[in-house]
Design a binder for these strands. Structure first.
Length: 421
RNA sequence: GGAGAGGUGGCUGAGCGGUUGAAAGCGCUGGUCUCGAAAACCAGUGUGCCUUCGGGUACCCAGGGUUCGAAUCCCUGCCUCUCCGCCA
């Protein structure tokens, strides 16, 4: 949620930010609603003041045994006026709230302005693309031939867009998330195991709702959504609370399945594990003091990079253009992992800062040392997505004989195995 | 899933139609005292909104309703606890 005060006092700045994000919300309407809202509040509170005064007098008279009939009769109309104004206010509040809830976060000044991913800016790269003297098979082929990935079985069970790992394939997934969790925990992240079904309010808090309703799975009977990312469960942990400043910064990590309908992505990446409805991911979330958020963003990026460096997988860092930023994000780095079989870069991590946008939606605040209350800043980053990591390993670590070498750091997690096949 | 009890400030806990934003205790902050600390004593200690910056107004799980007036009465929902059932 954006700060209404900022919109009121500096609408042009907000408009420019929205324009850079290619958002078409009607800000003038919001400004008008806000003015109307405050006008009604002024009126109704004046009346309520009168009523409170009169009520006290009525109470006095009754206590003294005098008749208060006249005063009561006089207040009847005031009561009705208040009720009518309260109705108006409720309506306007609702309208304003709805309009506000659709406003995306504003991008930072240093985010490149551009319509889509073609405007994303290269930041740096790490590692070498693997040089192979044979044709590297895409992960769905090598996975099938090694008997560790059974996409047919997944389709039998759930239709398209799912994967079924077995044997060392499933073991590889387990090795990866144990490796990542151990690394992040060692680096100070609090390990969490969290609900993957959450309420509307929770999804509103991180900004998935109302805009992305179509992209998520919902259990209609119970009104719960399956999380598209553990960001949702972790970030909302203190929704509606005022926490103490000594609890900041909070670093959290969770391994969960993630569920995405991929409603708008029909026909894209239909083969293999690259774009599926259910995948697992290790997610990192930080809740920090506002003034620390920029350095925390950089260190979160570094944390995600550390996983890829440990696995010796080549990647590049991109900073997303304004038009490619997610609804809630103020600045996002993407980590793109080169996969030799599909011969392209795969987005494997998205590291973002949300400033106070999510904290406002969650109404999560912290009490500072001086007693003042502020919104903390929230950040998150994948650390990392398993359904992209596994293909990359199957492709980049592929050998001419059709086997796949297991990265050194994973071997202790693989029962000592050094290759698959 | 069935039966019952209950949701009040950071916590415990009173209040059950009229100066109650809310007693009391604990905690916390500041002060006195002390070489220092503890104890004791004194003072302070919720959040949002509106504001002509004097104040005003709202909030006692959430949303409706009754009333001149609701923390208090009524309805709906959510959550917690106890017992039973089911269950990894």
């Amino acid at each position: 949620m954006l700060d209404m005060r900022l919109i009121r006092e500096n609408p042009e700045l907000v408009k420019q930010g929205l324009a850079n994000k290619y958002d078409t919300s009607d800000l003038d309407k919001i400004v008008t609603l806000d003015e109307k809202r405050r006008e009604i509040i002024r009126q109704v509170e004046k009346l309520k003041g009168q009523r409170n005064k009169a009520s006290a007098e009525i109470a006095q008279k009754k206590k003294a045994g005098e008749s208060a009939d006249e005063a009561i009769a006089a207040m009847r109309q005031v009561g009705q006026d208040i009720a009518a104004l309260d109705d108006d206010l409720r309506e306007i509040d609702q309208e304003l709230q709805t309009a506000m809830s659709w406003l995306p976060n504003l991008p930072h000044d240093d985010v490149p302005v551009g319509k889509d991913e073609s405007a994303n800016r290269f930041v740096r790269e790490w590692g070498e693309k693997p040089q192979k003297d044979f044709k590297v098979l895409p992960h769905w082929e090598i996975g099938e031939s090694l008997g560790i990935l059974d996409l047919e079985a997944a389709a039998r069970l759930s239709g398209s867009g799912f994967y079924f790992l077995k044997g060392l394939g499933a073991r590889l997934e387990r090795a990866l998330y144990n490796y990542m969790l151990d690394m992040h925990v060692a680096d100070g992240f609090l390990e969490c195991s969290v609900p993957v079904m959450v309420t509307t309010e929770t999804l509103f808090g991180t900004g998935q709702l109302p805009k992305l309703a179509e992209d998520m799975y919902k259990t209609e009977r119970d009104d719960l959504y399956l999380i598209p990312t553990a960001e949702v469960s972790l970030t909302n942990v203190y929704r509606g609370e005022i926490i103490d400043h000594t609890m900041l910064p909070m670093y959290m990590v969770a391994y969960t399945p993630c569920f995405r309908r991929e409603a708008g992505a029909a026909g894209k990446d239909t083969r293999g594990m690259i774009r599926v409805h259910q995948f697992t991911k290790v997610e990192l979330v930080k809740i920090v003091r506002p003034e620390k958020s920029l350095e925390e963003l950089e260190s979160l990026l570094t944390q995600a990079e550390k996983v890829l460096q440990g696995l010796k997988l080549p990647y590049r860092v991109m900073v997303l253009a304004t038009g490619d930023l997610s609804f809630a994000s103020a600045k996002t780095y993407d980590l793109e992992l080169y996969a030799a079989g599909v011969d392209r870069y795969l987005e494997i991590s998205s590291v973002s800062t949300f400033d106070d946008f999510q904290a406002r939606r969650m109404n999560c605040r912290f009490r500072d040392a001086d007693g003042k209350i502020h919104f903390p800043y929230t950040l998150n980053g994948s650390g990392l997505a398993l359904a992209r990591l596994i293909p990359a390993i199957l492709e980049n670590y592929q050998n001419a004989d059709g086997s796949v070498t297991i990265p050194d750091v994973l071997r202790p997690y693989m029962g000592g195995a050094d290759k698959i096949g």
